[in-house]
Each structure stands twice: as structure tokens, then as C-alpha cells.
Amino acid sequence: MTTMDLTRFSELLDAYGADPRRWPAAERSAAQDLLAGCAQALELQRKAALLDEALDQYLPAPPAPALRQKLLGAVPLPRPGWRDALTDFWRDLGGWRLAGPAFAASLALGALLPLWLDETAVDLPDEDLIAAVQLVDELPEWNP
């Protein structure tokens, strides 16, 4: 443990004042040890405290509330990137709450649509088309 002499203690008071919280952390403990057992150190501290008290009486007025409001009004929040925009879009669409039903509906549609097309949308060749094909087949190039 380091010790402190009265000369150094006096320098400490001259620079940092009487409050141990303002003393350098590395020397605080040694200074307090000296203080605990030295009446002369206590007297030096008492004198230094008088200037501290005078200094502490100068308290500037706090800033007006209007300044606080002005500063808060000027907060520029970061613009959302494309990931944020996509997330917002997804959320606006309903997010995962709608994803399940939408997936089930698309599965059902995928299963039912071919069945319905089999019955209604299969178009058999009509008589005119068969005749046209037969006519082409009768061209001379095809019958050498």
C-alpha cells in the first residue's frame, strides 16, 4: 500500500479541492489514510473546502423546456432499409397470421383445379379439323 506525505496531500487539495471524490483514484486511498491520522491534513482539507463551497454556489439556470422540445423535435430517425420495408409490407399484409390459411387455400386449389379441368376444359377435335387434316394428307407431295 502506498503512503502519502503532507506535501503531496497539499498539492492534491490545491488542484482538486477537498472532496475525496474529485481526487485521483490512484491516490484517493492513500490520501484518506493520511487524513484519518493527521490533524494538519484535516486542517488543510477544511481550508480547501471553503473554496469548494464558494464554487458550488454558482449554479447556472437549467435550460428552458423549449430547448428540450426543440431538440426532441429535431431527432432524425434512420430511414428504413429494404429489409425493413419488406418486413413492414409483410406485416401490413397480415404477416404469419394470414400465411397459414393462404398456404392451405393454394394447396386445395392446386388439388381441385386439375379435376375440374378434366371435366370441362378438355377440347376434342371437331369434324372440320379432322377433315382439314385429311385434305392435307391428300396433297400430291405426300403421295408420290
Binding site: E11, D14, A15, Y16, G17, L51, A54, L55
Partner: peptide, 11 residues
């Protein structure tokens, strides 16, 4: 530290 000591002395 030297600046502080001079400041307090001046004040």
C-alpha cells in the same frame, strides 16, 4: 493538475 492549482489560486 498544474492548471487546476493555478485556477483555484486565481479564483
Amino acid at each position: 493538475e498544474s492548471l487546476l492549482a493555478r485556477a483555484r489560486k486565481g479564483l
